[in-house]
Design a protein around this nucleic acid. Structure first.
Lengths: 224, 224
DNA sequence: TAGCGAGTCAATCGACTGACTTAATACAAG
DNA sequence: CTTGTATTAAGTCAGTCGATTGACTCGCTA
């Protein structure tokens, strides 16, 4: 698509390969986000990516799972980097808001860096919908030290909560981030949303909501 | 699958038709919930429903969209009935918790009435993932007077909130209900969850969380 | 500069798709 | 009991799927 292309002013073969790989990845991400994973064939991806070779997915990524894993990895690395910086800022705060920020803001900032339209958030939703790929995606995320440390700090802020409720609300927070970002991304892509710093605003709103949800009083249930 | 079958102790033709229709609907709901909409063909549905006729979906429901609409309608009616009762209880309360209850509990109680395993919640998630069917589903829901009155009552409890934030959090509440119920349904279906009154517990947890989220303070943003 | 190998391409395979047509079946009305 | 019709079964059709194949291009290295 752009960038590098070797140091000698010439298009070397490795550059062409890299371009092909990235063209396939970004095209696949877009098509998957728009139509869902199982609605898009490898053929469609290759053709939309300008590849005459309908087997390009098999060749460059071993297969469908490899392609999806590669896309997840690319974004995962970026988000992990950003989260590392926020984590350093948070230090050892005991304000839950700081930790929720470490959860939410890296995602929003990464999405902001992608420009408009982006597809990553909606792609993520589609991946989460597939039972097998969901596991892959969660694994990919939990490998990151910065995420594990964020969850650790967050847990420290809600220690007095019953463990079952805590797990329940953690799931809710994850779903809230995933789907709210996807909807916002969709709104931005079709121009139905304010222009600038919109992702920062979304991160703020999401943080407000999640902090409120996590700190909500737990109504006791007589019968478990 | 059971029940009725006419009053005269004999299996009449109309009963067979009804059985066929319901077999197709419940089979489709299950397959869609498990594998996603676009991963399941009409053929697979008919064969799994014990229909030799691979065109049964076209015959009984005009087509795929008609089938999905019929499934949505069936559950929508049930939920609407239950919500009507809760609405009568709530009266004109100005406690936000009552109104969130009117939103959450009908869904949970309907799911509880379906037994284990059920597929409705996960089917709903899949429908929400398809851009076209999502619109159909939302239309179907908003036709119900009981839902509109619930949202009205809810809005009355958060009138001092900026309208943008209110809409944002309403979306979040919708996503929370949809996906939390789907995950709970999945957990119940594979036996990884407590046994009895589990849906009542889920409704309580969901109500706590949503009330907390809706009433969370709004951090002012200098730049909109 | 010759040739090796990575990358690309067109063609092909059996399997599957939805839409459609035709034949058999079984019930309801007459 | 017969006739008509609603329902089901079975088969046909062109189109698309993923995977595989062998031939081709082209850059790198010896």
């Amino acid at each position: 698509m752009s960038g590098g292309h070797g140091g000698h002013g010439r298009t070397t073969r490795a550059d062409r390969v890299t371009d092909t790989r990235e063209a396939i990845m970004s095209t696949a991400e877009r098509l998957f986000a728009e139509h869902g994973l199982s609605a898009v064939s490898n053929r469609q991806i290759c053709e939309a990516a300008g590849q005459g070779n309908v087997a390009a997915v098999s060749y460059h990524f071993t297969g469908r799972a490899g392609l999806i894993r590669a896309i997840l990895l690319k974004h995962g690395e970026q988000i992990d980097l950003i989260r590392g910086r926020h984590l350093a800022e948070a230090g050892d705060s005991d304000d839950i808001r700081d930790w929720v920020g470490c959860l939410v803001r890296p995602v929003a900032e990464h999405l902001a860096s992608l420009g408009i339209p982006s597809w990553q958030a909606r792609f993520g939703v589609q991946v989460m919908n597939d039972p097998l790929l969901r596991a892959i995606s969660i694994d990919e995320a939990l490998v990151r030290t910065s995420l594990r440390r964020t969850l650790e700090g967050l847990r420290h802020c809600v220690e007095d909560m019953p463990v079952g409720v805590r797990a329940e609300r953690a799931d809710m927070a994850r779903q809230l981030i995933t789907h709210t970002c996807a909807e916002r991304e969709h709104a931005l892509a079709r121009g139905a949303a304010p222009p600038r710093s919109s992702w920062a605003r979304t991160a703020g709103a999401l943080t407000d909501a999640i902090v409120g949800m996590l700190t909500a009083p737990v109504t006791p249930r007589t019968a478990l």
